Amino acid sequence: MTSEFIVPTTEDGIVSSDLLDMSVTVLKTLSDPARLQMLWALSMEDLSLSDLAQLIGVSPTVASQLLSRLRAAGVLQTRKSGRHVIYSMHDERSREFIRQTLDFAKHRLDLQDARLEEDQ
C-alpha cells in the first residue's frame, strides 16, 4: 500500500524533531473549539473580526485574542479594507487541512454511532 503523503525521515527512519515540533504546534493550534470554528469559517471565506466574533458567538475582544493566537502560529494573514482588518488563511493547503480535519472527525463520530447501534 502506498501513501500519497511523503514524510521526510532521518537515516534512522524517524521523523525529524523540527517536523515533530511543527506538527505539535499545528495540533495545539487546533485544540480549541473556538479557534477551530474560526478556521472553519475562514476556510470558506475571508472575514473581519466583527464577522468572526458574531459567527462564533463571542465578544470582539475574545475573538481578537483567538485570532492573535492563530496569527502567532502563522496560520492567518491580514489585510486592510477601509477601517476593517480582514482575516484569511495563508493558502489552499491550509484550508484543505481544516476541511479534512473536520471530515475525519465526522468519520470518527459516524463509526462511534455505528458501534453504539450495534451494541443496542
Score class of each variant (00 low, 15 high):
M1P: 10
T2H: 10
S3R: 07
S3G: 06
E4K: 13
V7Y: 06
V7D: 01
P8Y: 04
T9C: 13
T10Y: 03
E11P: 11
D12W: 05
G13W: 00
G13T: 04
G13Y: 00
I14P: 03
S16A: 13
S16Y: 02
D18N: 12
M22A: 15
S23A: 13
S23L: 02
V26N: 08
K28E: 12
A34H: 12
R35H: 07
R35L: 01
L36R: 15
Q37C: 00
M38F: 01
L39W: 01
L39Y: 03
L39A: 09
L39K: 06
A41S: 01
A41T: 06
L42I: 04
S43Y: 09
D46W: 04
D46H: 12
D46V: 00
L47S: 14
S48W: 09
S48N: 08
L49T: 05
L49H: 05
L52M: 11
L52A: 02
A53E: 02
Q54G: 12
Q54M: 10
I56E: 05
I56A: 07
V58D: 04
T61K: 15
A63N: 03
A63P: 09
S64C: 05
Q65D: 11
L66S: 08
L66D: 03
L67K: 04
L67E: 04
A72H: 11
A73S: 11
V75W: 10
V75Y: 04
L76E: 01
Q77D: 11
Q77F: 01
T78C: 10
T78Q: 13
R79G: 05
K80D: 11
G82H: 08
R83T: 04
H84V: 02
H84E: 10
V85A: 09
V85C: 10
I86A: 04
I86P: 06
I86W: 05
Y87E: 03
Y87F: 15
Y87D: 06
S88A: 14
S88V: 03
M89S: 05
M89A: 03
M89K: 07
H90E: 01
H90M: 07
D91T: 06
D91I: 00
E92W: 06
E92H: 09
R93L: 08
S94N: 07
S94T: 10
R95M: 09
F97W: 06
R99F: 01
R99D: 00
L102G: 01
L102E: 07
D103N: 13
D103Y: 09
F104M: 14
R108N: 10
L109R: 15
D110H: 09
D113P: 02
D113E: 12
A114V: 03
R115S: 11
L116W: 00
L116Q: 11
E117P: 02
E117A: 14
E118Y: 12
E118A: 15
D119A: 14
Q120D: 11
